[in-house]
Design a protein around this nucleic acid. Sequence first.
DNA 1: TCAGTCACGATACAAGCGTATAGCTTCCTG
DNA 2: CAGGAAGCTATACGCTTGTATCGTGACTGA
Lengths: 213, 213
Amino acid sequence: MTDDRTTSAKLRDACIQLVAESGTKAATARAVAERAGVSLGLIRHHFGSMGELLHACDRHVAELVRARKEEAIAAGSAFDALGMVRATGSDHIMGYLAMRLGDDAEGINDLVDVMIADAEGYLASSVEAGLTVPSADEHARAAMLTIYALGSLALHKHLGRHFDVDIRSTELADEPGFARYLMVQMEVFSGLLEPAVRAQYVSAITQLSEEDA
Amino acid sequence: MTDDRTTSAKLRDACIQLVAESGTKAATARAVAERAGVSLGLIRHHFGSMGELLHACDRHVAELVRARKEEAIAAGSAFDALGMVRATGSDHIMGYLAMRLGDDAEGINDLVDVMIADAEGYLASSVEAGLTVPSADEHARAAMLTIYALGSLALHKHLGRHFDVDIRSTELADEPGFARYLMVQMEVFSGLLEPAVRAQYVSAITQLSEEDA
DNA sequence: TCAGTCACGATACAAGCGTATAGCTTCCTG
DNA sequence: CAGGAAGCTATACGCTTGTATCGTGACTGA
């Protein structure tokens, strides 16, 4: 099997991978070049500087996330703003975002804002469908829920310690602690669900928990 | 006015301050020494290494937070795990924690776990007092709510962009967007409140909003 | 065919990092 | 009133960082 990616794509992917694994600090120019299997000089040749490479990574991730927006809306739960990130299917995207949410980079701000805007539209559909209760301040609710979701992602390590779940996983449902995690989220956000829907969800998750046991 | 702190306290405080302002990366040995107004060599003399200094900062912050636990329980809202951090009254503690939550340091893990344990006890009292509905999984609920609170702290910049609130402020109630922020939190977590209490809170916050306007 | 451009590697460089060492005060103690 | 420990500064060392420079081979269009 041959690698048909261009060199700049290799560098970009290597950088994303390193950030996802060990944080922005670990993604040094030399580490990235080695991971990509090319020489150090090519970072400068293709991106101009290390900062530009990181910026290109941000843009690439944002593009991937945006491209999966529709699929996420079709598949996900109303309160899981991470659905569209997870739908990229690429292992490193969630991890990359988890690490980068801490740094202040313009590209990340933009992505967060887009995700909040999408969540707002998404919640509106859910209200219209009779699943979610309306809010007195729809934008604020969307922002708050998205920030909670992204905050969980940024603190995935602590979440994992207490729930036996790696929230960065692309197959979240396969994680050992998934049912428990889902149940708690349901409970915490139960006030947002229309009562009939809530009962339905609770029984579904209870069943899921019993299957696991 | 004289500064009666010992040199190690000056170094520790300078380090906390720098981390809070610009992140762990900016807290270099030279920057810390300069901020503390002492020479570079004293970091090694008093702490052995830069890593040990950072560790000492973690322990100091944890100690401050733990010391304020009772006051926070007396004053705060049931779902605000940041109350006991805010109660330290020191401007830089919230900022320090916000920045350090991203790094993986043992001291931070310990602090997070302590905060979750405290939140669990705190929520139990609230349930007993008839303010909060019971949970099917009290530990999980406490962990989830604490992680949401800490996640918001880690993403304070994004929260600030959308709510005009600096969640790191020790006087959160004075922030311009405080009423709106509080209202949304109330709505999102309304399922956790006993119905009578919920109505009471809503009217209180509504009044607060009108006063602001 | 033969410049010229592009992709790439090897190497060099200055800056910043944490850390180590040497020496000078200050202060306490026997 | 020694004398040694403790507190502190200045300076240097070795390493890693991002970036710059130079040289080479390969492809391309006049």
